[in-house]
């Protein structure tokens, strides 16, 4: 069956091409062509429209109303929700938290990812296994990872407290202490996401032409000098890509935080997306959640625009 179908298909294609150019080619495409065109773009267009653009327009609208997500009326309040955010101490702390979270998460993934990639780019025993092991957390669900790490961090029964005890250090109350909670969440985030950075760096490392290293060797460069003068410059476009994508995804971290700390203690781990969730689905302030979403959107847009500008300049690099 299948064989015959594909045969017929191939035949028909060649028949089509063999047909003498008829009337349709010279005129404007007939309606059926347009329908076909619509049919082709429809799946993407409808999906994006329904799940991306329409919600975005709705969010922009919601940011101007006061609505508890259940009553039939939405009252238009103009910029009140933005004014609320401007004056809200919590929101200010959330922005600061998001900033530190991004710095910690991106910096950590970058440095660790590069270090691991350099390590795994050498000829080692069990290299493939190690590569798989490093990448694996990326594939796991953030919620499951969060639950496991809650146990690891437990100051009394946790495995981490056990290790610290060996070093005769008292474990801090990682998730209960406002000073430690954000670092703890960042650690988990890095652990989950460093694999992705590693893989991208590995690909980048393997794309650096060997002859550059050979030339450097001939010039008498040492290992460190080769790393500084060959590896890093050649990797810089990749590094830039990793930084930008990491920043974007770190701003959207939700699962780990929801499972591990629920933004607490006292908002110490409350970052932008979690704040939006709290305003929207815990406090049922659709308007404030919408306004905070618009703030997030503007931040993301700014980062993306910077990336576009920068990568345009760097496009011929290397």
């Amino acid at each position: 069956m299948q064989g015959s179908t594909s045969l017929t298909l191939q035949n028909s294609v060649s028949t089509d091409q063999a047909l003498p150019v008829g009337t349709s080619r010279r005129k404007r495409p007939p309606v059926s062509e347009w329908l076909l065109f619509l049919l082709f773009i429809a799946p993407n267009f409808i999906l994006f429209g329904v799940f991306s653009y329409w919600p975005m327009i709705q969010t922009a609208y919601l940011s101007g109303v006061r609505w508890d997500m259940i009553s039939p009326t939405k009252r238009w309040v103009g910029l009140d929700n933005y004014r609320y955010l401007w004056n809200d101490d919590t929101f200010r702390q959330v922005l600061v938290n998001s900033f530190w979270f991004a710095i910690g998460a991106v910096g950590g993934s970058l440095v660790l990812g590069l270090a691991i990639a350099l390590l795994l780019n050498q000829k080692l025993r069990f290299r493939d296994f190690a590569r798989a092991a490093v990448f694996m957390p990326t594939l796991l669900s953030g919620a499951a990872i969060g639950i496991v790490w809650v146990y690891i961090f437990d100051p009394r029964y946790g495995i981490l407290a056990g290790f610290l005890k060996v070093l005769s250090v008292n474990s801090p109350s990682w998730l209960g202490d406002p000073t430690w909670a954000l670092p703890a969440v960042i650690i988990v985030y890095i652990w989950k996401n460093v694999g992705l950075a590693t893989v991208i760096f590995l690909a980048g490392l393997q794309g650096i032409p060997r002859d550059l290293y050979e030339a450097a060797t001939v010039d008498g460069a040492g290992r460190l000098s080769k790393f500084r003068n060959v590896t890093l410059p050649m990797l810089s476009p990749i590094m830039f890509f990793v930084v930008v994508t990491s920043i974007l995804s770190s701003f959207q971290a939700f699962d780990i935080i929801n499972v591990m700390t629920r933004g607490g203690p006292v908002d110490a781990t409350n970052i932008l997306v979690y704040y939006i969730y709290q305003q929207g689905f815990v406090a049922f302030n659709a308007g404030r959640a919408g306004a905070a979403s618009m703030v997030l959107f503007v931040i993301m847009l700014a980062i993306t625009l910077i990336q576009l500008r920068f990568s345009e300049r760097k496009v011929h690099y290397g």
Binding site: T5, T8, L9, N11, S12, V13, T15, D16, L36, L39
Partner: peptide, 14 residues
């Protein structure tokens, strides 16, 4: 009847 990709797509949609 010969089936080409276009008619097949149309058919599938229908």
């Amino acid at each position: 009847t010969t089936i080409n990709r276009r008619t097949m797509l149309k058919g599938t949609a229908a």
